[in-house]
Design a binder for these strands. Structure first.
Lengths: 211, 211
DNA sequence: TAAAAGTCGTGATATTTTTCACAATTAATT
DNA sequence: AATTAATTGTGAAAAATATCACGACTTTTA
């Protein structure tokens, strides 16, 4: 639980940086400048340098950043030495999409169990992840602290209560429901309909050229 | 293309407000205060009032907001009198999830066509949305300006180029690829792996209690 | 070896977003 | 009718975020 001086905006960009550094490393690149990185991830280069600077002086003037070193640094910063286990709640289409996104495997985050209410799915597995019945949370969830919520929004509240009861303290909520949780539980909302509406709104109301 | 004094942060919250007003209206509620709304959508009440104020004085002091009036106002602001047609590119699990999210139907946004490379899917439909072959974009895409991109990331760049060529100017990109587009095209990225990593990072590095 | 080119790290500044706090007004109560 | 309670809209302040711009240092080139 390190010193928490890193701005939230920066923290949100870290996984993105991390992935691109991985790409570069796999391509065998040895060095990279904030300018190059900027073009790849579409973030201003000064912002990138500022972001990195919160962790200390990671680069070298006139040279840029050493990809391997930076990558190693991020790996430890993003806690990639220990695997974070995640439960997927709701194995519908969206949930299944998560189970099949193999890129998760790069990141020491593993969806280790899935839960669904559909008896026909229970007992089977998707890409190696076993599916349990949603009523068996308390037997199966032990040790898992993070959940991805991809259930029908009508079920969201009740299931959330159960998740919290079983010790979950982080929820990635894909339902449109704004779920209510105790203070110690962190919820990030991703609302697909809202995202689409926002895009359409921006298209109609913001100048098309230049940003 | 109204006067664009509305902050982006506000614009992003509009669809959220809109949905909750809809809920309230359906529940038969006649009035609502910024405080109530705040609890429902988890946004500070002052922020809500500020957001609304960009559109003029929509409420009444000592009373709050008239749900029906506010809803009507939002409907026209979010351009809900005309349907926006959207194309779904990639009918895998994630794409299918979009096709089945019926809540889109409330919002005058319609996914009217889907595209996929899988011959077995072409010609069929999912929830009434016909699936065309990805190579037939130019015949089928006419008039459609917005696309949801849910294809494997390896295909993202090439397909994006084609979409742009066919006149798409808004893309909701779910692939991890940071696609490159001309200035007049707006891209919103939703990166599922990044979101999950960010949540895990926040859990580990930010105080659990209080926010 | 000296000069030129490249790039970081960061102080300062600008911009954007959130929040506070209260006068003004309306509605509800007595 | 007068008092109390509720709630907006917003000026002002605070906080968060992004960007500019340049000194310092490194690498590359001549």
């Amino acid at each position: 639980m390190q010193q928490n001086k890193i701005p939230q905006a920066t923290a949100k960009r870290l996984p993105l940086y991390y992935r691109f550094l991985n790409n570069l490393n796999q391509q065998g690149k040895k060095r990279v400048s904030s300018k190059e990185l900027s073009e790849a991830v579409k973030v201003d280069s000064a912002t990138i340098r500022r972001d990195f600077s919160y962790f200390g002086a990671l680069g070298k003037k006139g040279y840029g950043y050493n990809v391997e070193y930076l990558l190693g640094f991020f790996r430890s910063t993003l806690d990639h030495h220990e695997v974070t286990e995640v439960a997927l709640i709701g194995a519908g289409n969206l949930g299944t999409a998560f189970l099949k996104y193999s890129f998760l495997k790069n990141n020491n985050i593993r969806i280790s169990k899935a839960f669904d209410a559909d008896e026909r799915k229970v007992g089977s597995d998707i890409d190696g992840v076993p599916i349990y019945h949603i009523d068996d949370l308390s037997e199966q969830l032990d040790g898992i602290r993070v959940a991805i919520l991809t259930v029908p929004s009508t079920e969201a509240e009740v299931i959330t209560e159960n998740l919290v009861k079983e010790g979950i303290n982080g929820i990635l909520n894909f339902t449109p429901a704004r779920i209510t949780v105790p203070n110690h539980v962190r919820v990030h909302h991703i609302d697909l309909a809202v995202e689409l509406q926002a895009l359409v709104y921006f298209l109609k109301h913001y100048p098309l050229d230049k940003e």
